[in-house]
Write a protein that binds this DNA or RNA. Structure first.
Lengths: 196, 196
DNA sequence: AGCATTTTTTAATACAGATTCATATTCGAG
DNA sequence: CTCGAATATGAATCTGTATTAAAAAATGCT
């Protein structure tokens, strides 16, 4: 299965994710992608119909993979884990995935609004699923009384996702550990969401 | 003073801020900037030496103007305003400026990491001043005991700035009022920062 | 009004980068 | 080991866009 061909395709996709996250949609040059992938630019066209199709696949994977990673992390929790604990795990998984694992996440986060309309549909559908997942997490918590009644949970959820998405813009591992960042984010959630 | 020439220059700069915030650094076309400004593309060169100089000025203004706006809002508070109240005002001013007033802020926030190195110095200096301002706000609060001792205030401050910067990506006035968003953000700060 | 200066435009230049094509190379089944 | 299909390349094309140059138009001063 991991034929040579498939590996090359993957190298190109990875390279595109890296370049896209660094340069942005319009700044991504196929020449640079090819160089990073160790291939000549026209080779890209053997695997992708166009530059835009390549971008779309990166964006989709970015959204898809974070979602799967976070959903699995939460699903792996023991039955009966408190809803607040599930949110904490989701925070942890989201930050780890975005910062340690994948350029795809960064690429899709940074470029969601800059990419032409035509490319947005498939990635947007994934983002929507992810958004629903978080909503469900919060709604479950509210049902169990783990979230105070007077919190605008939707707005808070958006602020939280924003805070997490932005971490990639400032976090440097040499300054503070990822664990610390995660701990502060979780603390922020716990205190904002619960009473007293 | 507001000579015709100065007004045209301002129109071009405003147009560049708008286009830059929507399309990103590499995606900003001088043709589109000119169209939005109501001028022919080469006219831009009468006011700016190059595309990059135009971008740099937008980025610098973005960083500068938010800073001035927020600093003035805080400075306008009555003497003896509690340090936490000063932070609340800063949150309010930052969000209002970014969302109601200016494309410059959005342009500079979104593009800080995509712009070529050569353009980063001046805008980065402004951002650094702004960052210091927030640090001072938090340090003053801590000195007065308004911030619990076991909070990693620096990390929290970065998360907060991120949450606020990201609002522009999801907030739509028809869904919820800006006042609500501000209230939730302030609430989040108050609860995270103080003990119980 | 008439003239010098500032501002703006239209037409030309130059170049970078996506895409195509014809050709070469590599791969895997028999 | 060899042949047809899959994969990759170099050279050529074509388009879009920043930038320059030269000319025209507007402005404001006397």
């Amino acid at each position: 299965m991991a034929s040579k061909s498939e590996k090359t395709r993957k190298r190109i996709l990875d390279a595109a994710a890296t370049v896209l996250s660094q340069r942005g949609y319009a700044g991504m040059r196929l020449g640079e992608v090819a160089e990073v992938a160790g291939v000549q630019a026209p080779a890209i066209y053997y695997y992708f119909a166009s530059r835009d199709e390549l971008v779309e696949e990166v964006m989709w994977s970015g959204a898809h993979d974070v979602r799967i990673h976070v959903e699995e992390a939460v699903a792996a929790l023991p039955d009966g884990t408190a809803p607040l604990g599930r949110i904490m795990t989701a925070v942890d998984a989201h930050l780890r995935y975005e910062l340690e694992i994948s350029d795809y996440a960064t690429a899709s986060i940074r470029n969601a609004r800059h990419v032409p309309e035509a490319l947005r549909d498939r990635p947007a559908a994934e983002e929507s699923l992810y958004s629903h997942f978080w909503r469900d997490l919060f709604e479950a918590a509210r049902k169990e009384g783990a979230i105070r009644d007077d919190l605008d949970a939707t707005t808070f959820r958006m602020l939280l996702l924003g805070a997490m998405n932005w971490v990639v813009e400032w976090w440097r591992p040499e300054t503070r550990s990822l664990d610390e960042v995660i701990a502060v984010a979780q603390d922020m959630v716990r205190r904002t969401v619960t009473d007293s």
